[in-house]
């Protein structure tokens, strides 16, 4: 499914994204893999409509997207329930709101934590609330910006499993930014290597490529020097 066509984006005079076209796998996890400063987060923000591209077209509307940021970004003065309610329509009746919040908390295994404040939650719990808030919007596209990068290995693995199940159940198309090859291999249905502001290559994990070879290939791709002139895929 084509979501971006020939997108270019620059901060002041520094071009971050060069002519990017992104054709993602629907109802699956599409990992955007790249080193720090490679424009992954910018690409995600352009897709979400949070940044306007200088050139090119975004084919999806911001209303269809929900974003999970690297830090959970829960408003510290609102309870879990109130933070989640921000993702629901303002005019929703209280009873319906409570029901929706309780259901999504159950899905992310945080049932009963409605009245807690963000500083009473662990990092992993807070990120689950962040994920729950994004899913409450019933998005077609779930855009995640290194959401598990700050978590310990065990929590990260738990959340990756949870994400896989949720994506399968809710049938959303996920764009998942990461710099971790193992994470991309663990959850990605398709992996886009972003280098020097261009999509250098796309891999589908269902392809016949043996996982070890794929890992090596990804590592080589990430380590190659950037080639901004390269025609993107």
């Amino acid at each position: 499914m084509l979501i971006l066509s020939r997108v270019r984006f620059a901060f002041a005079h520094h071009t971050v994204l060069h002519d990017i076209t992104l054709d993602v796998r629907e109802d699956g996890i599409n990992c955007l893999l790249g080193a720090s400063g490679g424009g992954k987060s910018t690409l995600l923000r352009v897709t979400a409509g949070l940044l306007v591209p200088d050139e090119g077209t975004v084919h999806i509307t911001p209303e269809d997207c929900a974003v999970v940021f690297q830090d959970p970004r829960l408003l510290p003065w609102l309870t879990v329930e109130e933070n989640l309610a921000l993702a629901l329509p303002a005019r929703l009746e209280r009873r319906q709101r409570d029901r929706a919040v309780a259901a999504i908390l159950e899905e992310v295994q945080l049932a009963g934590l409605q009245k807690h404040l963000p500083d009473e939650l662990s990092g992993g719990m807070a990120q689950r609330v962040g994920l729950a808030r994004a899913l409450l919007r019933r998005p077609r596209f779930l855009l995640m910006d290194e959401p598990f990068a700050a978590l310990d290995a065990i929590t990260r693995s738990e959340l990756q499993q949870m994400l896989l199940e949720l994506i399968r159940r809710q049938r959303v198309t996920c764009l998942f930014v990461t710099h971790d090859i193992n994470e991309a291999l663990a959850i990605g249905d398709a992996i886009f290597v972003l280098r020097g502001g261009c999509v250098a290559e796309r891999f589908d994990t269902g392809d016949s490529l043996d996982p070890r070879r794929l890992r090596e290939r990804l590592r080589e791709q990430l380590l190659e020097p950037p080639e901004p002139e390269k025609v993107p895929s």
């Binding site: 929900a66 921000l86 993702a87």
Partner: peptide, 26 residues
Amino acid sequence: AQRELANSLHLGWRRYYRYVLLPAAT
């Protein structure tokens, strides 16, 4: 970051004032 969150949630100005701006200023 909080403004970006509000944008990503498409909060209207009323909800933005009530849940983001005024509490931040409190």
